[in-house]
């Protein structure tokens, strides 16, 4: 998971813009190898932007491309440029996990990940969790247990819980609490989220 950049007095976007992509990549703990040319950049890592550039993203197995500014987060690229709005933005700074997607199998906050840094990686979103019409066991059990109210936290919550079950076939209640400790839900569905995830784990073992 990416670390949060401090946001006092300077917005992340403003900071990224000012510092260029290299520093930005370092700031969010990702490598900053930028593999495309834009404008002139004689020495060192290439400077891109601020103009939009073409980015291709592999989302739920499909290659998609969009023209975006380098400062665009993965969350925004998914939601606005690719119209995949299942992923939600709530805090836009790494505090709530509503924007959780998997990158190469690891749950990350897509609001803290630049879209350009997600190129060449395998991105999985809530829209790609079910196998066709067959829901993922976590999705199914969320419905069975009523682990949602308004549903705005639900995609992020499910991506966190499903990721847990990918790595841990036999989770305890405490494991589920840890896996969702970054996911905020204002409607207060946590108890049912725990029940649903434990039930899904059972279902996956059966």
């Amino acid at each position: 998971m990416s670390t949060s950049s401090s946001n006092r007095g300077i917005s992340r976007r403003g900071f990224l813009k000012g510092a260029g992509v290299t520093a930005a990549g370092a700031a969010i703990g990702e490598s900053a190898v930028v593999a495309f040319a834009e404008e002139s950049a004689p020495k060192g890592p290439k400077i891109v932007g601020p103009k939009p550039l073409s980015v291709s993203l592999k989302v739920n197995g499909a290659e998609k491309s969009a023209a975006i500014e380098p400062r665009t987060t993965l969350a925004e690229a998914l939601r606005v440029n690719l119209d995949m709005t299942g992923t939600k933005i709530v805090c836009d700074r790494g505090a709530c996990s509503a924007c959780t997607v998997w990158i190469d199998g690891t749950p990350v906050n897509s609001c803290m990940t630049l879209a350009i840094d997600a190129q060449g990686k395998d991105i999985r979103t809530i829209e790609g969790l079910a196998m066709g019409d067959t829901l993922h066991p976590v999705q199914e059990q969320f419905i069975e247990h009523d682990a949602m109210q308004c549903g705005f936290c639900t995609p992020g919550m499910i991506m966190s819980c499903a990721a847990l079950l990918e790595h841990n076939k036999n989770p305890s209640l405490d494991d589920v609490k840890t896996a969702t400790s970054g996911n905020l839900c204002r409607c207060g569905t946590y108890p049912k989220v725990f029940d649903a995830t434990l039930a899904a784990a059972k279902m996956m073992k059966a």
């Binding site: 709005t85 299942g86 939600k88 979103t125 809530i126 999705q139 419905i143 069975e144 499910i158």
Partner: peptide, 15 residues
Amino acid sequence: PRVDGRAKVTGAAKY
């Protein structure tokens, strides 16, 4: 169970 549960768990629900 909620009749709109499926829309909410698949991200299809449009806010």
